[in-house]
Simulated assay, not measured.
Amino acid sequence: MPVPARGLLFAYTDIGSKLRSSAFEAWHDMEHVWPLLNLPGPLFLSATRWTAADCLEPAHLALYDLASPSAVHDPAYQELIDPRSGEYDSDKTSDGERDGRKAPSRRHSVLPDKLELMERRPGKYMTVVEVEMKKFAEAEFNRWFDEEHIPLLARVPGWVRSRRFVLKEVLGKYGTVREERPPKYLALHEWTSIDAFQSREFRHATTTPWRMQVLKEDRVLEYRIRVFRVARNWGRFEA
């Protein structure tokens, strides 16, 4: 029996120099999240907010688990983000616009390769890996990730879970679809501690001969990795 596809809305936010992080966090936690989680369906299943642990920009990341990738086009969500509704004023939205200036934030709606049936509380830390492969190398990349990489990461002390997604579309202001195409593949790996990165098991998982072959320079168009720590979470997480 086919498993219904779920989705993820992925949002980096650069708040700019004129807005304090505390003000953005207060708006996000007290005003922004609850209307989304209360949309009928529900369309939004859970949400987590993360802050950079690697001192890089953008410093804020929000993840929203969706009942399906099409949730971002549901009339109830579109009405909520319509500027005429007053819910998302331009001086406080997370679309990166502050004081009339554009900041390089973006939202992703992405489709998971595989559904993770058991929801868990998020790890305290998360590595975000975005990869764009050359077309001829994609099949082996996916096979390596599923057959070797995630099984090895699962043996690392402090590993919580790994999730993989494939980019479906990029959303701009007020949910409109944009032409920008960030890396196609997204992997989220959650950890109890960043000490995991110093373990023998982690070093082994990230230096195998197959990994070195798959991620050769002539096969990879783009590779980005970030480290975040969890700030807040909402929704249907189980212990």
Rank of each mutant, 00 (worst) to 15 (best):
V170G: 09
L43A: 06
R121W: 03
A59T: 01
P151L: 11
E222D: 10
G96C: 05
Y223R: 15
V110P: 03
N233F: 15
K114G: 03
A139C: 07
A67V: 15
P4S: 11
E179D: 15
E116F: 03
P69F: 09
K134Q: 04
S68G: 09
P42H: 05
M118Y: 09
D29G: 12
M133S: 00
L8F: 11
V110T: 13
E148H: 07
P58I: 00
H60C: 05
R226I: 00
D82M: 04
T48R: 15
Y174L: 05
R84H: 05
S85I: 01
P151S: 12
Q198L: 11
F24C: 08
I225C: 06
A139R: 15
D113K: 11
I225N: 08
V227G: 00
I81G: 12
L153K: 03
I150C: 11
F202R: 06
G158I: 03
T127Y: 00
D29N: 15
F165Y: 14
I15D: 05
A67C: 14
F237S: 13
T93M: 12
E116S: 07
L8S: 04
L117K: 13
L111V: 15
R236F: 09
P151G: 13
E87N: 14
T176P: 02
K124Q: 10
S17T: 14
R224T: 12
V177N: 02
F44Q: 02
E79K: 15
H204R: 14
Q78A: 12
P209A: 10
D65C: 01
R143E: 14
P112G: 10
